[in-house]
């Protein structure tokens, strides 16, 4: 038993070292670790924060970035009820068709529709943004090392002046946390970019925290269900394993080993 535990611990330790080395390999500057409400075994999202984050996203980010895995019906997950979702969807037009005349037409969006893309396609997006396609944001929090910490650091990591000796390309902005430090996205948030419906003061920091939370939610909408289920499953397994150990002891007590 002792040996087994030691082996298991050693294996876990070695794997951790591995995983760390492999994920660290791809990154530039390590973003500062933030405290997020959804971290830890019991972490959950803050619905009010997610709704504020959605407000920032749809007002600011959505002008350039798509969100291909967000359907209006998903907004239930950040605490909107059916009528609110219908009202939000009704603010948007989506393409549908063909109609009986064989033509495509636009209509107001329904909860089952996906959030409309700001550009017709990637090429159009690139053309409108100086050649750089604004990446889709639905998985951003999972698609970068340190996920939410990186997003937070990036959004607050702009510097007015590039450090001495750095030659900035045309139309690029210096960002401390972007891997090449030269990012095509201009600083997106200045403070008071939105007027929060819940009265929270829309400072840059607040907006960044909120939109980061929203981006993490859309990347991992299953997180709360996953952790809640995980707790039950692990507790069950610990009890079962303890019982199995007791049975094992009892059975093996009969022989010399």
């Amino acid at each position: 038993m002792r040996k087994f535990a030691l082996t298991a611990i050693a294996a876990a330790f070695a794997l951790t070292a591995f995983a760390n080395t492999s994920s660290k390999a791809a990154e530039g500057v390590v973003p500062p670790a933030m405290e997020w409400s959804w971290q830890g075994l019991f972490g959950t999202y803050d619905r009010a924060q997610l709704q504020r984050g959605f407000q920032v996203f749809k007002t600011v980010c959505a002008t350039c970035h798509s969100m291909r895995y967000l359907a209006f019906r998903n907004l239930e997950g950040i605490g909107f009820n059916e009528d609110q979702i219908k009202a939000i969807a009704a603010e948007y037009e989506v393409q549908d068709g063909p109609n009986d005349d064989g033509e495509m037409f636009t209509r107001t969006a329904k909860p089952s529709d996906h959030f409309p893309h700001p550009f017709a396609n990637d090429k159009a997006a690139a053309a409108a943004n100086g050649g750089a396609t604004p990446p889709d944001l639905s998985l951003m929090a999972k698609a970068r090392p340190h996920g939410p910490d990186y997003i937070h650091a990036l959004l607050t990591g702009y510097e007015e002046e590039a450090p001495a000796g750095v030659e900035m390309a045309d139309g690029k902005y210096y960002n401390h946390y972007f891997p090449s430090h030269q990012i095509s996205m201009p600083p997106p948030l200045y403070g008071n970019d939105v007027e929060y419906t819940d009265g929270t003061e829309a400072t840059v920091d607040q907006e960044v925290l909120d939109v980061t939370a929203f981006l993490n939610w859309i990347a991992e909408p299953e997180l709360e269900a996953r952790k809640a289920m995980g707790m039950k499953v692990l507790l069950f397994l610990i009890v079962l394993t303890a019982m199995l150990y007791a049975v094992k002891r009892k059975i093996w007590a009969k022989i010399e080993h």
């Binding site: 999972k142 996920g147 995980g230 692990l234 394993t241 059975i251």
Partner: peptide
């Protein structure tokens, strides 16, 4: 019984990753 007990321990470790660190072994890219 010894194998079953081992499976219990193993499942606890396996499912810990599944439920609480599902992308631990994965690559963000």
């Amino acid at each position: 019984i010894k194998d079953l007990f081992g499976m219990g321990v193993f499942l606890i470790i396996y499912l810990y990753f599944v439920f609480f660190a599902p992308n631990f072994f994965g690559e963000p890219d």
